[in-house]
Computed example of a mutant assay.
Amino acid sequence: MDPRKQRSQARLYAAALGLAADRPMSELSVTQIAEAAGVHRSTFYEHADSPQSLVEAALTAELDLLRDALMSDRSDAATSLDTVTRGVLEHVLRHADIYRRELSDGGGALHAMLSRHFRGTSEALIERGRVAIDIAVEGTPRSDVTDAAARFLADGTVGLIDGWLRLPHPQVEQFLRLYAALLPDWWPHRPAV
């Protein structure tokens, strides 16, 4: 992407996240975001087709940086996953107003986005051999078990984040203790302390 387009994208992302912190994504308009970013409406459409997709793209871009760091981390899987999970939780807290509103007890717009992202990360770790799902279920192909396990972990993680954000003062360590206690044995993690 050329530098001019990158600058426009950064301004649009910042404007979209700033506005979405104050109101539901469904109430955002292209005009509001373009004006807040200091760009023309046509520039908006070079980066997204709707305000919701722009907010999701801005959040996903931050999560992608965390995933990239995880994939290049040469620590053992449990250490790498602890580091990236902390990063994800800090990301969620930075955008807590958006996530609280848009996760909306499993039916919100961001539930599916987070689930897809977490599932994609799990699948990448499995493909690279950093996570092994050694579960056999009679009559179920191994690939279906692996897919189900990745989906189960992704949706469960999003549900836990949703509940955690509804606490009066969510703390990262509090989440990590509960998460470690709930994670299945096949997922690399540090035991709950």
Rank of each mutant, 00 (worst) to 15 (best):
L176R: 05
A78L: 03
R119E: 06
R177H: 10
T60H: 06
L28W: 01
P3C: 02
H117Q: 07
V84A: 00
D97I: 07
A58P: 11
S143F: 14
H169E: 14
E138A: 14
R4E: 15
L165M: 04
L110V: 10
G129A: 04
F44K: 01
H111D: 08
L103N: 08
L81I: 07
T60C: 03
D73N: 05
R130N: 02
R142S: 12
A136G: 13
P168W: 10
R119L: 00
G129H: 01
Y13E: 12
A15L: 08
R94C: 06
P188A: 00
V172L: 06
E138M: 07
I98P: 12
T157Y: 13
V92I: 13
H95D: 08
L65R: 13
Y99L: 09
Q6F: 11
S26E: 14
D105L: 13
V30Q: 05
R86F: 02
A149S: 09
L110A: 02
A37G: 10
D155F: 10
A136C: 09
D49H: 15
A37E: 09
D147N: 12
A77R: 05
H117V: 02
Y179S: 05
G106S: 04
T83H: 12
R7D: 14
Q171M: 07
S143Y: 09
Y13N: 11
H91I: 06
A58E: 08
L183S: 04
T157Q: 13
H189N: 00
H47T: 04
D64G: 05
H117M: 03
P188H: 02
A69N: 07
V88C: 04
A36K: 10
T157M: 11
P3N: 02
Y13W: 12
A148P: 08
D22V: 14
P141L: 01
V193Y: 10
V30F: 11
S143K: 12
L12I: 01
A154E: 05
G38F: 12
P141N: 05
R7P: 06
G18Y: 09
S53F: 07
A57V: 11
T31M: 12
L110M: 05
R151N: 05
V158H: 02
D49S: 15
P188W: 00
I135M: 02
A69R: 12
L160C: 09
A150Y: 00
W186D: 02
L63W: 11
L63A: 12
S104D: 15
S122Y: 12
M71E: 13
L63P: 04
P170N: 00
I161W: 04
D2F: 10
D144S: 15
L178M: 10
L54D: 06
D97C: 05
R74W: 10
A154M: 09
W164N: 08
K5E: 14
S143Q: 13
M71K: 00
L182V: 09
I161A: 03
